[in-house]
Amino acid sequence: MKIIENLDLTAYNSYRVASRCKRAFFPESEEDIRDILQEHGNGSIIMLGSGHNVILSKSFYDQDFMVFNGNFDSVKLIDDQTIHAQAGIDLLQLSEFALSKSLSGMEIFYDIPSSLGGAIVMNAGANGEDIHSLILNARYYDPNKDEFIELHSADISRGYRDSYFQQNPHLVITEATIKLSKGSASLIKMKMQTIKEQRWAKQPKDFPNAGSVFKRPAGYFVGAIMDELSLKGVSIGGAKVSEKHGGFIVNYNKASGEDIMALIEHIQQCVENKYGFRLNVEQRII
Score class of each variant (00 low, 15 high):
3 I>Y: 06
4 I>A: 01
5 E>G: 01
5 E>T: 11
10 T>I: 05
12 Y>C: 03
18 A>W: 05
19 S>Y: 11
21 C>L: 06
21 C>Y: 12
22 K>I: 00
22 K>W: 03
26 F>W: 13
26 F>H: 12
27 P>W: 04
36 I>P: 12
37 L>D: 07
38 Q>S: 11
38 Q>K: 07
39 E>P: 00
44 S>A: 14
48 L>F: 09
48 L>N: 12
49 G>T: 04
58 K>A: 10
60 F>N: 11
60 F>D: 14
67 V>D: 05
68 F>K: 05
68 F>Q: 10
72 F>H: 07
74 S>Y: 05
75 V>W: 08
92 L>A: 10
100 S>P: 12
104 S>G: 10
105 G>A: 10
105 G>C: 07
107 E>I: 08
112 I>P: 04
113 P>H: 12
119 A>T: 09
126 A>D: 04
126 A>M: 13
129 E>T: 05
135 I>P: 03
137 N>S: 13
143 P>W: 07
143 P>T: 06
144 N>M: 04
147 E>I: 01
150 E>Q: 10
150 E>G: 00
151 L>H: 04
154 A>R: 14
155 D>V: 00
155 D>G: 01
156 I>Y: 11
164 Y>D: 01
166 Q>L: 14
170 H>M: 00
173 I>H: 08
178 I>A: 03
183 G>T: 09
189 K>W: 03
196 K>Y: 11
201 A>R: 05
202 K>C: 02
206 D>C: 06
209 N>K: 06
210 A>H: 13
210 A>I: 11
210 A>R: 10
211 G>M: 14
212 S>P: 02
214 F>E: 05
217 P>T: 00
217 P>S: 01
219 G>D: 08
220 Y>M: 04
225 I>P: 02
226 M>L: 10
227 D>H: 06
231 L>H: 11
232 K>C: 07
234 V>H: 13
236 I>W: 01
236 I>H: 13
241 V>N: 14
242 S>F: 03
244 K>Y: 08
250 V>R: 05
251 N>I: 05
253 N>M: 00
253 N>R: 15
257 G>D: 10
265 E>M: 14
267 I>E: 14
267 I>V: 14
269 Q>P: 00
272 E>F: 15
273 N>I: 04
274 K>R: 15
278 R>L: 00
283 Q>S: 03
